[in-house]
């Protein structure tokens, strides 16, 4: 049996950590794109679409991410689709992220005082013009801190992709431990890895929140 040096462990975790970062980026970019479209559709007037999007958000918020990953991976296989762990994890995390961002952003748009809609309406701006020139710029400023804050949840969410065989930080830790039998060291390092990724984002979100508050924007 081979002996693992600490460096071996760290090196392997770092290599696997790349995929945690890549999967997080895919989930976040995909989730933001889908979430933006959903948010705008939801703000529009058409009732059935609003209702459907609310159902979508409720389903993804009301079920564990783990089940969503299982469904994307095993469910797709049961339906005859051959999906890789990569595809399943990217898809499930993208949908999960989009549902939460859609809800966060809806809240930010609704947080813009109704007087702003009125003022832009009486100046003759139509719905899209009001959105573009008056509402969205203000909602965007409100949205940045919670959005950055939520990205932390996405990074931690990628850990669950390990259960469908996606080799990222957590899965690599499990595999290393099977060979090296040093659970405390290995999982402490895994946790440290997540912390190094998440902590700066949390700090940044807090900073943005303070700056927003300081700017006196309601």
């Amino acid at each position: 049996m081979t002996d693992f040096t600490l460096w071996d462990i760290v090196r392997n975790l770092l290599l696997a950590g790349r995929w945690t970062v890549v999967l997080s980026l895919i989930a976040f970019a995909g989730g933001a794109a889908v979430g933006l479209v959903l948010t705008l559709l939801r703000m529009g007037g058409f009732k059935p679409i609003r209702w459907l999007i609310r159902l979508y958000v409720d389903v993804f918020q009301g079920t564990p991410l783990l089940m969503q990953l299982f469904l994307a991976y095993f469910g797709a296989a049961a339906l005859g689709f051959d999906v890789s762990a990569w595809t399943a994890a990217s898809l499930a995390l993208t949908l999960f992220t989009s549902a939460f961002l859609c809800d966060i952003w809806r809240g930010c748009i609704e947080a813009v005082p109704s007087g702003q809609w009125q003022a832009s309406r009486v100046l003759g701006l139509n719905y899209l013009q009001s959105m573009r020139h008056v509402i969205l710029p203000q909602a965007l400023r409100l949205a940045v801190p919670p959005t950055v804050g939520f990205s932390v949840q996405v990074i931690k969410g990628t850990a669950l992709a390990s259960v469908i065989g996606f080799v990222e930080l957590t899965k690599a830790g499990t595999m290393l431990n099977n060979a090296a039998f040093a659970p405390f060291t290995i999982f402490a390092l895994v946790a440290l890895g997540y912390f190094i990724l998440c902590y700066p984002l949390s700090r940044y979100a807090r900073y943005l929140e303070k700056r927003l508050y300081g700017a006196g924007i309601r």
Binding site: P113, G115, Q116, A119, Q138, R141, I217, R218
Partner: peptide, 10 residues
């Protein structure tokens, strides 16, 4: 013109 001004703060 409204009681609450409603200027665009941005």
């Amino acid at each position: 013109v409204f009681q609450s001004f409603n200027l665009f703060p941005h």
